[in-house]
Computed example of a mutant assay.
Amino acid sequence: MSSAWTGERVLLRGIEPGDWQTFKEFDEHAPDMRSGDMLHPPQSDEAYRRWTADEAARRPDADSDSYRLAIVSRKDGTMVGTLNTGDADRRAGRFAYGVSIGHRYKRSGYATEAVVLMLRFMFGERRFHKCEIGVYAFNEPSIALHRKLGFVTEGRLRDHEYFGGRHHDLVLMGLTAEEFNARHAFLSVDSPVHASSAGD
């Protein structure tokens, strides 16, 4: 496969208006919401339709380093999760991102491959030097995933977030372009594109 956004198991694409039902399904599962963000009050179907339509209409310009993508299974075309980048500091060369996989699709290697595709683009095409993330300490599967990808724990913010009636720590992790390249290798301009297919 020659697309930079396609791996062996997943492809990354823009948000489509019809994705609203998938976003609603993800939001109705409390652990999914807490692992990526926090619990929110219920929304109407119309609110989901409008939000998704707005996301679908948003087109990043050539210099944008903030975007949201759908993670889609190549096997059957099902949207299995989302990935977004943000907090980009081009002067310092760092950015952040978030990834979320729906509970029915976890442990299938989707997050690993999607993240590798995104990091290849941000490091190898956008010339960023470092990716920095924060993971809630109770989200042990996400911490394990990022360690497997090569992220290093750089710190811990104690009692930083409040969920389920108590405070929780936020684990800070980082990965440099050199560390990524040592594990996954950048692609030459004529190389076929395949991300790591390790499980998550």
Rank of each mutant, 00 (worst) to 15 (best):
A182K: 11
D54S: 15
G165A: 08
P141M: 05
S196M: 10
R74I: 11
D61C: 13
A47Q: 13
W20V: 07
H167R: 13
R9N: 04
A111R: 01
L149D: 00
R126L: 11
G81F: 01
G199I: 09
G174Y: 02
R127E: 11
P192A: 13
V99H: 02
T85C: 08
L149C: 01
E16I: 13
D61Q: 09
S73P: 02
G93Q: 08
D63T: 12
R104S: 15
S73I: 09
V72W: 00
A198W: 00
A70Y: 04
A4M: 12
V116L: 05
M79E: 07
E8R: 04
R120H: 08
E8M: 05
V99D: 00
K24P: 04
V135Y: 04
R158Q: 08
G98N: 03
S73C: 11
P31M: 07
R90A: 15
G155I: 10
R50L: 14
G77N: 07
E132N: 10
Q21S: 12
F151N: 03
K106C: 15
S191M: 12
F23N: 03
Y67W: 13
T176N: 04
P60K: 14
L117G: 00
P42Y: 06
F95S: 01
D27E: 15
F23T: 04
N84K: 13
V80C: 03
R59C: 14
E46A: 12
F151A: 04
H103M: 10
E125I: 10
T78K: 12
C131Y: 03
L187A: 09
I143T: 05
S66E: 14
R156I: 11
F186D: 03
V189F: 11
A92E: 05
E16C: 15
V80P: 00
E161A: 15
E179N: 09
D54A: 15
H194F: 09
S64W: 06
A198E: 04
T176P: 01
T78L: 10
G98E: 01
V116A: 09
E46Y: 12
H167P: 03
S197F: 01
H103R: 13
E16T: 13
G14T: 13
R94L: 14
E132W: 08
D65L: 15
V116P: 00
